[in-house]
């Protein structure tokens, strides 16, 4: 069973439908026991970094999420992806979950922010499971982006800067765009996560 972490940040109806469509059982929960039993953890989120960390801490989930990220397939989506990193600057400097090294900083681009709309993915490299999505368009909505080690970046997009679009390290994955709003391609990307993260 896949558990989507419910911490009051954003609507998760389409995320859960996407996984159900792929044939998985899904539960949306903040219950510790259920989260511990789940096969995969999905951390969604829309809103500001600071507000999101507060919600996670208020629910006493911070340590649990850090613990789970060592053990099972773990995917952060949009703000959920950003929270995986050590520090964010949206709404004031805030400590993140520190599951991945790096920071979340305001995008430096001459283009309008937020970076919103359909943008093409760039993904290179042998053995990169996301290179099959090279040139495919996915739906982005964000003004902050990850600064992290290039080794963890599996896909990017161009927006007057190189935007990390998919990050991964071992069983931990992060997707900056909204796969659940990216049509069939988005669902295929979630499927790739499910296949790869167990290896």
């Amino acid at each position: 069973m896949i558990a989507i972490v419910d911490y009051g940040m954003g609507n998760v109806a389409s995320v859960s439908t996407a996984f159900r469509k792929l044939g998985y059982e899904v539960t949306i929960t903040d219950d510790r026991e259920t989260l511990q039993k789940a096969t995969h953890l999905i951390l969604p989120g829309v809103g500001s970094f600071q507000a999101a960390m507060k919600e996670i801490e208020d629910r006493g989930l911070k340590n649990l999420l850090q613990e789970m990220a060592k053990k099972k397939p773990f995917l952060g989506i949009c703000l959920g992806m950003q929270l995986l990193f050590s520090e964010g600057f949206e709404g004031g400097k805030t400590k993140g979950l520190s599951i991945l090294p790096g920071t979340i900083e305001k995008m430096e681009t001459e283009h309008i922010l937020p970076h919103i709309g359909w943008n093409a993915l760039k993904a290179e490299g042998n053995g990169n499971p996301f290179s099959q999505f090279k040139g495919k368009h996915v739906y982005f909505v964000h003004s902050f982006a990850a600064k992290t080690n290039a080794a963890y970046i599996a896909a990017t997009a161009e927006y007057g800067m190189t935007v990390p679009a998919i990050v991964r390290r071992e069983n931990v994955y992060g997707i900056q765009f909204h796969p659940e709003k990216s049509g069939e391609v988005g669902v295929d990307i979630l499927k790739t996560f499910l296949q790869e993260a167990v290896r």
């Binding site: 609507n11 109806a13 389409s14 439908t17 996407a18 739906y139 909204h178 659940e180 709003k181 990216s182 049509g183 069939e184 988005g186 669902v187």
Partner: peptide
């Protein structure tokens, strides 16, 4: 809107 959010995979 609720049903659409569950079935439509674009914004």
């Amino acid at each position: 809107v609720k049903k659409t959010a569950e079935t439509v995979f674009v914004p």
